[in-house]
Amino acid sequence: MSNEKEFIPVRIAVLTVSDTRKIEDDKSGKTLVDRIEGAGHIVADRKILRDEREQIADQLREWCANKDVDVVISTGGTGLTGRDVTVEAHRDVYEKEMDAFSTLFTMISFPKVGMSAVQSRACGGVANGTYLFALPGSPGACKDAWDEILSVQLDYRHGPCNFVEIFPRLDEHKRRK
């Protein structure tokens, strides 16, 4: 009998944050969908919302309350301009922030975009037993985050540890008496 773990598909919702994009021209969202499905995971839902903090946070909360969504990945609205509010919306929802996600994303981005990596506010966290990640709104950033971080951590077969194996313990604090 083999000790190899079997692949476990994860249900992932994709949110594009943009004042101008539609599904037809949403290259970053399509990049994520293609990679998610290509890896054998399930796209549980996909939406595009304007850069409105409350609307974004409400959508994140809705997906976190949905037992058919394990992970939420948003793209767009992570920059420094006045309309970039995705990170604030994510932080409105997070129970815990994953500081190392931001650091690792910056390390991966730096060799590709140089000092421009300092402008990214990509972040990750956990809420209601759901992983949430906010990525920049470029296809390249989505490829980098998926290919070099998320595809690995969302693969149950990855060792020594991965996000999938700790799913059951993400909300254990709510079950304590």
Rank of each mutant, 00 (worst) to 15 (best):
M1C: 11
F7Y: 02
F7I: 10
I8R: 14
P9G: 14
V14K: 01
S18C: 06
T20Q: 11
T20D: 15
T20K: 12
I23H: 03
D25L: 03
K27R: 06
S28V: 13
L32P: 07
L32D: 05
R35V: 05
I36P: 07
E37N: 06
G38V: 14
G38C: 03
A39W: 00
H41Y: 01
H41V: 05
A44G: 09
D45M: 03
K47L: 04
K47T: 07
K47P: 10
I48Y: 08
I48P: 05
R50E: 13
D51H: 02
E52F: 06
E54C: 07
E54T: 07
E54Y: 13
Q55L: 12
I56C: 05
A57K: 10
E62P: 12
W63C: 07
W63I: 09
C64S: 14
C64Y: 00
A65Q: 08
A65M: 13
N66T: 12
K67Y: 15
D68G: 02
D70R: 11
V71P: 00
V71Y: 05
V71Q: 01
S74H: 09
G76E: 10
G76N: 07
T78Y: 02
G79F: 01
L80Q: 14
L80Y: 13
G82A: 09
R83Q: 09
R83V: 01
V87D: 00
V87E: 06
R91S: 06
V93F: 01
Y94S: 07
E95W: 02
K96T: 09
K96W: 14
M98L: 15
M98G: 03
A100Y: 01
T106K: 15
M107I: 14
M107G: 05
I108W: 05
I108D: 01
I108R: 02
P111Y: 03
P111H: 08
P111N: 05
G114M: 11
M115P: 15
A117G: 07
V118W: 01
Q119K: 12
A122Y: 01
G125E: 00
G129A: 14
T130P: 03
Y131M: 12
L132D: 09
L135M: 08
P136A: 11
S138C: 02
P139E: 02
G140I: 04
A141W: 04
A141L: 03
K143Y: 11
K143A: 06
A145Q: 01
S151K: 08
Q153M: 15
Y156C: 10
H158R: 13
P160W: 14
P160H: 11
C161E: 09
F163W: 10
V164Q: 15
E165S: 13
E165R: 14
E165H: 12
F167T: 10
F167N: 10
F167H: 10
P168H: 11
P168E: 09
E172S: 13
K174G: 05
R175K: 11
